[in-house]
Design a protein around this nucleic acid. Sequence first.
RNA 1: GCGGGAAUUGCCAAGUCUGGUCAAAGGCGCUGGACUCAGAAUCCAGUCUCGUAGGAGUCCGGGGGUUCAAAUCCCCUUUCCCGCACCA
Length: 962
Amino acid sequence: MYDARDIEKKWQDRWEASKIFEANPDPKKEKKFMTIPYPYASGPTHIGHGRSDVNGDVFARYYRAKGYNVLLPMAFHITGTPVLAISSSIERNDDKMLERMRSYVSLHTSNKQKVEKVVKSFTDPWNVVKYFSETIKIDLKSIGMSIDWRREFTTGDKLYNKFIEWQFLKMKNEGYIEKGNYPILFCPRCNNAVGEDDIANGDELDLNINEFTCIKFPFEDGFLVPATLRPETIFGATNLWINPKGIYVYALVNGEKWIISDEATSLLRTQGKNIEILEKFEGKNLIGKKVKAIHNNAELPILPGTFVDTSTATGVVYSVPGHAPYDYIALIDLQKNDKLLNQFHLSKNEISEIQPINIIELKEFDDFPAKIYCEKFEVQSQDDKEKLDKATVANYKNEFYNGFLNEKCGKYNQKPVQEAVKLVINDLIQDGQAAKIYIPITRALKCRCGEKIFVTILQDQWFLNFNAADWKKKALECLNRLEIIPKKYRQNFVNVFHWLEKRPCARKRGLGTKLPFDKNWIIESLSDSTIYMSFYTIIHIINRNKIEADQLIPEVFDFVFLEKGDVIKISQLSEIPKNVLSEMREEFSYWYPVDHRHTAIMHISNHLSFYIFHHAGIFPEKYWPRMITLIEPLIVEGQKMGKSKGNLISLAEIREKYSTDLFRFYISHGADLGVSMDWREKKIQSVSSHIDKFYSFVKDNITKSKEIDLKIEDIESDYSKLILSKMIKSFMNAANALKNFNLRKYLQIGFYETFNLIQEFKKNAENESEFIVVLSILIPDWLKLLSLTIPHVCEELWEYAGMEGFVSNTLWGDFNEKYIDQDIENEYDYISNIIKDILNIQKIAKTQNNDKIFIYTSPRWKIDALKIIISKKGDFDLILTEFKKNSEVMKNKQLIPFIKAQIKNRVWETTYQDIEEEELIKKFINLIEKRVGRPIVLNSSCDPTGKALKANPFKPAIYIGD
RNA sequence: GCGGGAAUUGCCAAGUCUGGUCAAAGGCGCUGGACUCAGAAUCCAGUCUCGUAGGAGUCCGGGGGUUCAAAUCCCCUUUCCCGCACCA
């Protein structure tokens, strides 16, 4: 056993003191710029982050071991609302948030008073940021990350703001940014846009917004205005529905006279419409009157519909009984209901003449879809809300994805419904026959402040337009050159790129950087994190030279990143010394582009895509990213990890509960990149004992080797040479697995396979001194190999073995490749196969205790024949022709069956081993006897069952008997 | 729905790109043995079916195809997982 905590602290401190992970440009060395996304500083990091962090660190250490100059930097993300949400919740003493923050802070201190003090300080957002960035840094150091911390920053720093301002000015100049209207959720009391964090139960509710089209049916001197999600069905409208008991109004809406429900007026007001209510009245007053259709001259009656909800949209519905189950059933209800007809003085004849109109062609539907779906879901009346909702969804889905409008729809004839919806909306709005309103999908959304949330329309929202100019083309080109591992994710990127259209890139509140050309806006959190890797290359120079934010004028970044402008002029403008500007430019051009970015697949459709777009849009090709590796998410005991589930494991706990090397090993070996990792407590415990064993085994052998005065050159036994050869080969295989970033395979071979091999060898080794010497050759390479994953243990053993410097800083070299001896390995494989066969026979056949084992090697003629078969690559005719040259051989009756059998086995494809079988068996006879526990008799004339005849080359015959 | 991914022998999981060396790595579990008073741990052996001779048969979600040869390539199908925009 060893004390992990001590060892880890010791080496982490030494690494820091010796600055071995601080990377500086070195023109003589090839560079690798490796990045992992920076963590969000609103809470502690957990093992999910830990997986990508450790992966990234292992890759960085791998690059170092291969001789690259490696930069692995880290910073903190604080942009947006989460930090503000923490502060405001603490401010108003929100119990849940207080509890959460207490538990977070308790991870790093057990002093309750201190916890309370820290949590109280969170009323200031910057204290939140400061606290979490500091503790996350502690956590990252504690898991052995080989980070150059000189380059740390937060996205709220003034210096960073200047950098992002430059980025957005640049994007604006390129034409990637534009203004437009945008509907968002809004809280009138907070007078703010609201997101998931601000909404009660926001994480569980559907926060999407529905876009309704209000259609203006001419009525009297104004319009009766129903709202719909399906404006394409306007061609199938037969009547309108009004709730007779509802309160409706005549109102001037932006100067036009509309009839809508009373409740709808406040909704329209919030969406920027100017409303003046002229008169309120009950819905029943409208019943029986008629509106004019908008697509032809038909007159549509206004009928009573109790299902109409005046608080939804405009409180007016137009009826499409052919395609809407609600409308269909309401029509049937009315036609049957004489009482109701009488009550509203409606003509029974007229109403019963109303027929659904079919406007959508649907395969295999010979009746109105609304009718079919009503029957399918057994709808009885318009009050069967539950069934009607289901029928409506099913009906709509089918029509939307499979339907085509028919000849009744004029110029939209034969258009797929999916397409027609957009066309109809655009045309109606263009012609002034409709307007849009927006309504949250979830009704009665409440802000955390208690106020009801509604949708408002931002008139001047800033968007990134991914379709602007040739931006997308460039991004696709960048993607084309980019290596994506595992490959299976590439298609995903391609599809996302095509799907990306516009993205709002600024918000009204939150931490971050103000839009340089419109200071009312703050750049949104994903948009300010796309090219930040370039900032790592210069931030330490900015800090070291005490450059102020004001000095970071756009010209500075143009010069550093884009090689534009005159250094003397820029130096004068910015008051940054010329040599500092040049240093920044040189450092940037040394490290850029990012060679390797590693993160989780969930970022493909947002961050990683923006990462590529923004690089492609801003930087010249030579600075475009080179490679992305991806991991699937981490789950805990088969369950998603989450705050609400209470199964979140933070990195701070790792340090206490397990050990860093154990964590690093387990998380690296637990799953391949493209597979989700299941964290299992039981498993991690068994890995723990494996590492302990490894440590003691290596340490013991180092101790022993110090007492033995023998040189590797003095090694004599073939078995020792075999050990060396096999182990070195395994090292190389393990190292090869890393070339493809296959961590699991690397550890499977580099740790388990080698460890098993070495233990088997130890058991069978004849000469212990030789074994120890062999190990002393192997151990340094083994430590180098494993130091990527378990660096602390390896450093400790490295030091114990008396090696120079840090193993973390040592090149791999060729792992003593010169000791690989294929001949010895072939011989050993041959003997192993014989032993395996004997054991197999012993298992099946009931042999006696006093049995001997007879081995018969292949007769000479078979070996000769085999050579011919192999030389002719199994072509039967050619082989026979060859044999016919020698009539003696052809007399052998066993020849043809032998040839056929060998052809069937495709022997020419297996490596032909040039082995003298009898000699070899003699040489290893002791080993064989030891393993099978019986005496061996080789090529004896005693052969009671005629086995000797069956001996084949490299497959000697075996007989067990006495 | 759109887009992406996955399905392997009790469970987890390699292998699939690049077809043959694949009854198919490794781990867990289980069975037997060693050690032990006993348990834990550790070590050894076995773990699709059949087999008193190193073998044979069947098998990689289901169905079809290509090939001398398919877990691997092609087509169809079923089931499951993930992403879908102002949320970091």
